[in-house]
Computed example of a mutant assay.
Amino acid sequence: MRAMVLEEIGSPLVPVERLLPEPHAGEIRLRVEACAVCRTDLHVIDGELPRPKLPLVPGHEIVGIVEAVGAGVDEARIGRRVGVPWLGHTCGTCFYCRSNAENLCDEPQFTGYSRDGGFATHVVADEDYAFELDPGADPVSLAPLLCAGLISWRSLKRAGDGRKIGLYGFGAAAHIITQVCARQGRQVYAFTRAGDRSGQRFARDLGAVWAGGSDEAPPVLLDAAIIFAPVGALVPRALKAVRKGGRVVCGGIHMSDIPAMPYALLWGERELLSVANLTREDAREFLAIAGQAGVRTHTTAYRLSDANRAIADLRTGKLNGAAVLVP
Rank of each mutant, 00 (worst) to 15 (best):
A137D: 09
P139T: 11
V140F: 00
V140N: 03
S141Q: 13
S141H: 04
L142C: 07
A143P: 01
A143L: 04
P144T: 14
L145Q: 03
L145R: 00
L145C: 04
L146Q: 10
L146R: 05
L146Y: 08
C147V: 06
A148G: 15
A148C: 07
A148H: 03
A148F: 01
G149C: 12
I151N: 06
W153C: 03
R154A: 13
S155R: 01
S155A: 15
R158E: 14
R158S: 11
A159L: 08
G160P: 00
G160D: 07
G160I: 13
G160N: 09
D161G: 11
R163W: 04
K164R: 14
K164A: 11
L167A: 03
L167R: 02
L167N: 01
Y168F: 15
G169H: 02
G169L: 09
F170T: 03
A173K: 00
A173V: 05
H175V: 10
H175Q: 14
I176L: 11
I176H: 05
I177V: 14
Q179N: 05
C181L: 07
A182H: 08
A182N: 09
R183A: 15
Q184W: 10
G185A: 10
R186Q: 11
R186K: 15
R186C: 05
Q187A: 14
V188Y: 06
Y189M: 08
Y189R: 08
A190T: 05
F191S: 01
F191I: 00
T192R: 04
T192Y: 03
G195L: 02
D196F: 01
D196C: 05
R197P: 00
G199T: 12
R201W: 00
A203H: 04
A203V: 10
A203R: 01
D205I: 12
D205P: 00
A208G: 10
A208P: 06
V209H: 08
W210K: 07
A211F: 06
G212F: 09
G213S: 12
S214Y: 08
S214F: 06
S214H: 12
D215K: 12
D215G: 14
A217C: 00
L221D: 12
D223I: 09
A224W: 02
A225P: 05
I227M: 10
F228P: 06
P230R: 09
P230Y: 09
V231F: 03
V231Y: 00
V231H: 07
G232Q: 11
G232M: 09
L234Q: 08
L234I: 13
L234A: 09
V235F: 02
V235C: 02
P236A: 13
P236K: 06
R237H: 08
A238F: 02
A238P: 08
A238I: 08
L239S: 06
L239Q: 06
A241C: 08
R243T: 04
K244R: 15
K244W: 02
G246V: 10
R247C: 12
V248L: 07
V248W: 06
V249S: 02
G252M: 13
S256E: 13
D257L: 14
P259K: 00
P259S: 08
A260F: 14
A260C: 07
